[in-house]
Design a protein around this nucleic acid. Structure first.
Lengths: 191, 191
DNA sequence: AAGTTCGGCAAACGACTGTTTACTGAATGG
DNA sequence: CCATTCAGTAAACAGTCGTTTGCCGAACTT
């Protein structure tokens, strides 16, 4: 049933989804839906959890990296690129519902992205470049990174199903932007 | 009718909007809708145009600024903050439909944001800091700024209707992030 | 003054909607 | 082996939906 929902959400958003629609796609009777979810919003938050599981795996994989700034940037963009390709439906769902019409789903996504940022911040604190950074500055930087990753992922989403050339251009731009940010980071003097 | 649509889109998204719903909110009969739009998607693109008019005004106002980097950043964030407050419905609509379920609307928004980035890039080229920057690097930086503005606006949207303290925190973070980016910009050596 | 466009209406069409109800077979557990 | 839970069904309910049709008054053009 979750899969059926995800399939339909490829070109629809959660608020316009119908119970009958989902069960039809899943090959079940309408009443069967209520055996599993009270609401369509409930199905939505279930999908959020499912999507974020795969996302957390990606985060660990990014944060576990070591090496110079350049390779780190390259690997980060690679991981994003691959994640979008391999979990297209989940990423699209998150991008679409992050500011979508269903409050509970929106809040679930936002909370999880916040935890994501905290995790990134903790990882940043361990890097030597961050010596002497205040807690606030670390958080600020982490949010900048997370927002940038989200924007990049969303852009890749649109690009991958249109034009492979455009995908490479977006990845290249993302790498440059990360280089510029890490440059600013090296010269940061505290707020 | 546009106003009615916008009002309904406060807690709904375009794909789940109904013709009858709109006309009811507007105080008209269902058939009246078809006097003005063939589609609901058409109403969507009309709203995109309306929203982007006010957005373009904002852009000019940001780009027309002069002064040191610090005041420029402060004024930029101020303008965004005020714009979100004064055009909350439009901003919300754009944030929601940018990755929403209606292709034509999505494409209209993306195209316009691209033009926005080009405009920002042209303005950046005029600043002394950008001496020697390649066209590609300028575009990269402009997109970084635009993405950052969009993220900030979306975050402010959620914050303003919840907690005035949280709004100030987001604005403060945005200023710090812009300072870090402009630091990286000063030390950029070309790609 | 006559003709035409514009923006509006009520009514009707069949199709689809969410949800509840009562029922059924299979698996599970004591 | 019996009872119970689980996951499914068909049927029905009253609404709502998008869209078309034919009609109407006002406003504008000529």
């Amino acid at each position: 049933m979750l899969d059926a929902g995800l399939r339909l959400l490829a070109d629809q958003n959660l608020a316009s989804l119908g119970v009958r629609e989902v069960t039809r796609e899943a090959g079940l009777s309408p009443a069967a839906f209520y055996r599993h979810f009270p609401d369509l919003a409930a199905l939505g938050v279930a999908l959020v959890e499912e999507s974020l599981a795969s996302l957390h795996v990606m985060i660990r994989s990014v944060l576990a990296e070591a090496g110079g700034a350049e390779e780190l940037i390259d690997r980060t963009v690679d991981v994003i690129e691959r994640h979008v390709r391999e979990h297209r439906s989940h990423v699209r769902f998150l991008a679409r519902e992050r500011h979508g019409g269903v409050r509970r789903v929106r809040e679930a996504i936002d909370a999880e992205l916040g935890r994501f940022a905290a995790e990134v911040g903790a990882a940043l604190a361990l890097q030597p470049v961050s010596r002497g950074w205040s807690e606030q500055d670390l958080r600020m930087l982490a949010e900048l990174y997370v927002d940038h990753m989200v924007s990049t992922a969303a852009a890749l989403l649109d690009a991958q199903e249109a034009d492979p050339e455009r995908e490479r251009r977006i990845a290249a731009t993302a790498r440059l932007q990360l280089r510029l940010i890490s440059l600013g980071r090296r010269h940061w003097q505290g707020s």
